[in-house]
Every structure is written in structure tokens, then in C-alpha cells.
Design a protein around this nucleic acid. Sequence first.
DNA 1: TAGTGGTCTAGACCACTTT
DNA 2: AAGTGGTCTAGACCACTAG
Lengths: 238, 238
Amino acid sequence: MVGAVGSQPVYQIVKARMLDRIRSGKLGYGTLLPCEKELAVEFGCARLTVHRALRELAEEGYLERRRRAGTRVAARASLGLHLSVPRVDDEVQARGKVYRYELLERQAQHPPQDVADAFGLVSGAKALHVICRHWANDRVFQLEDRWLNPEAVPNALDQPFVHLGPNMWLLQNVPFSDVSHEIAAAAATEVEAGWLDIAPATALLQIRRRTVWQGRCVTVASLSHPCDQFSLVSSPGP
Amino acid sequence: MVGAVGSQPVYQIVKARMLDRIRSGKLGYGTLLPCEKELAVEFGCARLTVHRALRELAEEGYLERRRRAGTRVAARASLGLHLSVPRVDDEVQARGKVYRYELLERQAQHPPQDVADAFGLVSGAKALHVICRHWANDRVFQLEDRWLNPEAVPNALDQPFVHLGPNMWLLQNVPFSDVSHEIAAAAATEVEAGWLDIAPATALLQIRRRTVWQGRCVTVASLSHPCDQFSLVSSPGP
DNA sequence: TAGTGGTCTAGACCACTTT
DNA sequence: AAGTGGTCTAGACCACTAG
């Protein structure tokens, strides 16, 4: 039974069968599982194979594992969820609509205090402020309001952002970075409403994104969607 | 050098060092990495150890791996993000406020069509409708509007939900289940505004949750927060 | 067809924590 | 003190796919 990989890896079979027992309720909250060695005997495989299955189940929140104390079915106290935020052009095209990018403003300006702090700029220094729209057919799908740190991405100052949006440009020109997100609702201001071509105070779904590279904040962006145009859907769990 | 676990597992060291090379830009988009065997020699460890490091980096979106073709630095096309939705009472208490639960309505009613379809109910059948509020000090933090499928959780019909909210009751009484989420913004209706004690048409951040157990929809819930009270923040990545 | 990643094994030692 | 999970190794075969 060496490498008996019929179609599915053994660790996935073990994982699926244990998951069944958990989901069906056969193994209730807090139930102590047999140790890895015993399960390895039961499934007729090596302990490492069982270990991988149980490790992944623990990472997915189904099990809690502690040395010596053993493995127990976790009490699901909070729910994690995975969202994938696609590129806006992909998202629009996935809906069968025509995507169009439009630059509205591009100017070096004094950033608001929170942005200046995030960028670590001396007071009085300017940053690059870009505002643009992403269209789906003849409606504005997303309003992008972005600040770029001139010290972190000096190249950005040379970019017109007329045809290529800053989002896409950053993806192509900044190495892998840490990104943190905040999802919020907000009422559209007068100005935002004008840009989005909706009534003032309409509810917006906002994604606020901060990109950090090597300890330095490169850019902050606020991506606003009219509430009737967009919602975030969790990716199906494993 | 058997099990040379000084403080950190070897696979994590390998992972961290490869991640550094990616984040720093030393390894740019599309760069082909040495094969696992070579890296194992470089790091002085077994191939499986390298394999685990690279596998996890690939799962996190940094690398793309294909048999025969090798391992390349991925182009980050879309950004995934992890949100954890804590229990509402934990969330309130984490803000240093006093949590209070309040039941508003609890009634067997004809559900709207989309809920009836999700539950697989014959037309004319009723479902349990529960509306309740979650307070933080003297403000409503969350309005919960929930339907329960009487065929999936008949016990729920016996629950008063006066002191224990349906959310908590379900966590304790339904085995592990599949949960899908939708995050949206919406304007508060007149009725919602009254319950939330805010002005009508105020922007709300809504979490819509659907819980499925063994192929059957158990409950659907809409959790609404006034936009100034709450936003979702991505958990820091690994 | 050759070379890459994907998985598996048997055995080992270590780290942690309950008893 | 003992038993659990966490990691590591050396070697092996398999599955996929670029050349």
C-alpha cells in the first residue's frame, strides 16, 4: 500500500472522513479524538499523513490541538470568512459589462493628517492625490480616491494615470507588500454623489485599503461602490 | 543537524527567508525559483521541509507552482483578505462597552419567497421569524433579523429566545455547518431606523449569513450595523 | 522523456502539558 | 513521568507537463 494514490491523496481522504464525522454531529463539540498514532492504524497510513489532515482541519477552525492534551472538536466561537477582492476590471467584465477607466483628478496636494501620519511625511509635504472612476457600461461602478507616498514610490510622480489606473500600475510596479483592509458603509457626500452620479447620502460600500512595503506605507485608497451595484461575497470554504 | 529546532521550525525559517526575497523585490514577478532539491541543499534540510515552506507560500498567494514547470513568483492579480466575524457580544465587550441582548419579535410567519426557496418549504408553510437587538451601552450596535427553518431545527420552535439570542443558541445546538456570507451596504428602512434608533436612510453595514447543514438551509440572518458604529477589519496576514 | 512538484513511509527526536 | 502533537529526515514512487 505504498503511495496508494488512486485518485485522491490519502491525507485528503482522511480529512474528508474526519470532517464528515464533525459535520454530521457524530463528533460533537469538545469530543476528544483518538491520537494520531491510533488514527494512522485505523486509516492504514503513516502518522504524518494523519497529522497533515488534522493540522489542516485545525487551521480551518474545526479542531483544537494541544500537545499532550490531544485533539478536540472546536467550539465555533467566531466565524472566519474569506473574501477575495478581484481587480475591478475583472469584476466588471465578470458581470458581462463593459469596463472603462476614467481619470478625474491627479494633483500633488497636502494630504489629510491621517494620511500624512501613515506616510511619515514632514508637515507641509505634499503627496500625490488621484481620483478616478471605474465604469460598468454606463454606470459608475467604483469611485477610487487614492493617495500615493512620493517617498515610497517616486516613479508614480511620472505616471499620468490617464489610461492605466493607479491600482493596476501599483500591482505591476510595487513588489509584494502587506495590505490591510477595512470594509465599511458610509453615506455619499455631495461631491462623491456627483462623481458617482447618484443622490447625495446614498449608502456606499467602501473598501479602504492600506498598502505597506518594507515598513513604509506606500498608498492608501478608498474604493466606494453604490450599495445597489456591489456587495462582497465570501468564497466557498474548503 | 537532526531536528535542529533552536527556536523556530526550519520550514518557517525557509519560508521567512524566501518571503523576504519576494517582498524585497530580489525575486520579481515571474522569476523561476530553484527546484526543491536545490533549495534543500542550500538550506541544509530535507526536501519535504522546503516543500512545506513553498507550499504554504503558494497557498498564501506568493508563488505559483506547477509540476515540471517549477515554481515562480506569482503576479498578484487579486487580493484575498481574511475577515473574522466575532460574536457580537465579544465584539461589544472588546470595545469596553456593556453588552445587552433584547428580543423584539418572535413569530411563526410566512417567509418571503427567497427564504422559502432557500428552506425548501412548500408554499404556505411558515417559518420562525426572530428580530432582536444587540446593544453596546445605550446604543443599538446590531439589529438581527433572522429566519429559522422549522424542518431543519424543530427544537428552535421551543426556544423563547428571550435571554439567549438565536445566534448563540444555534452555535451551541447545531453541528458544524457551512456558512456563506455577503457583506453589503444599505439604507435603513423606516422600520429598521426605528429599531436602530437612527434617522431613516442612514447607511447600514449589513452582514447577510446563510447557514447550511447537510445540504439543507438551517437559517438566514441579516445583521445590520449603523455605519458609524462598526466596520470590518481584515486580520493581519501571516 | 526527463525533470519538476506532490505525496507517502518508517523512524526519530523534541516540546509541551497533563497527571 | 508519560503521552500527546510538532517537526525532521532519507528515500521512494507517482503525476503532470514542458521540450
